[in-house]
Design a protein around this nucleic acid. Structure first.
Lengths: 210, 210, 210, 210
DNA sequence: AATGAATGAGGATTCATTCAT
DNA sequence: AATGAATGAATCCTCATTCAT
């Protein structure tokens, strides 16, 4: 009869379980106000066990950011790179997808980075250069594609790109910071639609337009 | 021989001096990482003097938020209320003004609120309801004005409003959190122009438009 | 028309007013928990003014003890020294008088001394030697007088003396520390009567006594 | 070569060790003047370790009082309840036992309570109702027993009871507060004998008495 | 590998004391 | 003489980190 171990060794699963717990804790209270005890409790492990996987609170925080961001970034870029067809619906789809992502737990990352930028300069740089700039780059390319194909007006793609990103940021912060305390609720899907519509067609009534 | 007094009585000037120093300190390091000693040093006073004017770090933080926000809010609303003429340039002017403000020290406030929302729920509610919602309200009215005058397409003003606010938020956070650590620089004025242009006219090339 | 000064100079009255206020404050909260602000407020003066009359909190405390104790001690001793007649009623009168005094504000002094003895060794010594020992001395003499006159049994006066003092101490502490927080109330006059009765005649029923 | 560990796990022993150290420290300097560092040093532990067992200085103080008092109270009451024989020697034995206890470290408790009554009202109430009143109750019953058996004069037991308690209080405070600073020394055993003798037989010479 | 008891540096807060007014 | 704004030493308490078990 095989012995059933009281608990299973999960040496491989542990780090990511801890990171998940830490993301939830950091998202809820912020970096400084999060006690490692809380993270350990959420992860269902002892406090000392954290140190077997992460050498300090700072390292854990960096790991949270990196592990949360990197896969999603790669996925997003891949999706865009393989796109075909007219640019407008493509762009609308990207914006919608990112706004939906921003409304979820991942949206806590910008909040954390922005709040701790001065205390984690290298993280801030990583985020600014590798996430924001790269994200802007994706939008820049999309806009340039539309301009090149004659679908878009000849705007400067690099200057316009942040404007596509802005509603995503707004959603991330609203959903992950303010809405839990606010009276007003926001419909992320409606915002996504309005964002695409407005950014593509503008507010001003055009001659002969809908 | 002039004697250098160890200190001087400043009962009236002190509170706002302290608030200014605290805003700078909080903006730089965040709420938790700011030591009251630092605030006192910035303000050129002793540590205990803070407590003559603010009963705790929390109260000081709340005072910083309130005193920084309230005057600017009132001013912004007043300016809009008295506006005349076509809506498009009016809206462009408002957006430009707010983006410029967001690029300055006041832009640190959203960063602080967003980071500490969970730890200061009443502050988060105040900000969400009194600042964000009211700001959205201003935009909503502006858009409704444009729609009513036949200048704008018949969009839903309340849904579109956050999209005007989003570039302002982006500017505030970029300038006050990430840019100091980033490789890339952002031109706030250019962003303001692009924002107005895009939000008014959209990306998509229109029949017979410029 | 004579000018009416806005307030009267009371350079002479001030110190004792301050001492009174301080006694009340110390009696209420204890030495350490009493803030000089409170004393100043009770005395109706500014905080700095205290330092014109007392060089430190410690000195004020010592002054409170000395000025509260000394006059009463002298008065008590004088009263006894001039006594005439049988010793039993004399002793009863002394005990009654002291128990009544102990029930009043002066009773807070033992509480303060006892609590701060280790922090004010010289005060403790002063109290032990000049108040307690002298008080015991008074009782010792009274008892010796009774023994010498054949009114009392031949007890050792010095050993018996503390037993006359004990009910006074009990009253002082009960009335000034515990009773305000207790469910039970104590009748000081009844205790005084019982003290005299018991100490004079004992509990044990004597042959042919009432 | 034996390694000296920086510390050792003592989870079970710690609380009472800390309470002992705290009693000593509080007894020596009083509540307010005792620094938690001192308590920790006396207990041979680090400052933070205190907080693993007691959530604040106040809680530690309350624990000290409770843990010092409760066992002794129960023991004393039990001893009396099972008594047989004539009341006079029984009462003498109880008084002697309590005076001896009061002369020891436990005698510091009344000093602490009395000094901090206003700052710890619930502790004061607990002490007044559960210790003092209960102690008085024990004496009341003893006296009532003597009266009922015709051994004692028909005094009011409840009024006389505090007089038996008074010498015990005197001893506690003298030994734990004043004597270390006084010139005079007190013989607790002699006081106990004198107390019994006087309270039982009184000062006044009786007809045909010893 | 896992744990959590133990640690102590760090920071918010209080309040006796000083001194410009 | 009187004031109370200003000060900073002193102390409680937290929590990241270590390490005996």
């Amino acid at each position: 009869m095989p012995v059933t171990p009281r608990w299973r060794r999960r040496k491989e699963a542990r780090p990511s379980e801890i990171v998940d717990a830490a993301l939830a804790a950091f998202a809820e209270r912020g970096y400084a106000a999060t006690r490692l005890d809380d993270v350990a409790e959420r992860a269902g492990i002892g406090k000392g066990t954290l140190y077997l996987y992460f050498s300090s609170k700072e390292e854990l925080f960096k790991a949270v950011v990196r592990q949360t961001l990197v896969p999603n970034l790669a996925a997003a870029e891949a999706r865009i790179a393989t796109a075909e067809g007219p640019t407008a619906p493509l762009l609308a789809g990207v914006v919608r997808g990112l706004i939906e992502m921003a409304a979820g737990p991942m949206g806590a990352i910008p909040k954390l980075i922005v709040g701790e930028a001065a205390n984690f300069p290298d993280l801030a740089r990583f985020y600014a250069d590798e996430v924001v700039a790269r994200g802007f780059g994706v939008f820049t390319q999309l806009i340039a594609r539309g301009v090149a194909r004659g679908e878009f007006r000849p705007v400067d793609p690099a200057t316009a790109a942040p404007l596509l990103a802005a509603p995503i940021l707004l959603t991330a912060l609203w959903k992950n910071a303010l809405e839990p305390h606010a009276t007003h609720r926001m419909d992320a899907a409606a915002l996504a639609s309005a964002a695409s519509d407005l950014l593509l067609h503008g507010l001003v009534r055009q001659e002969g337009a809908t």
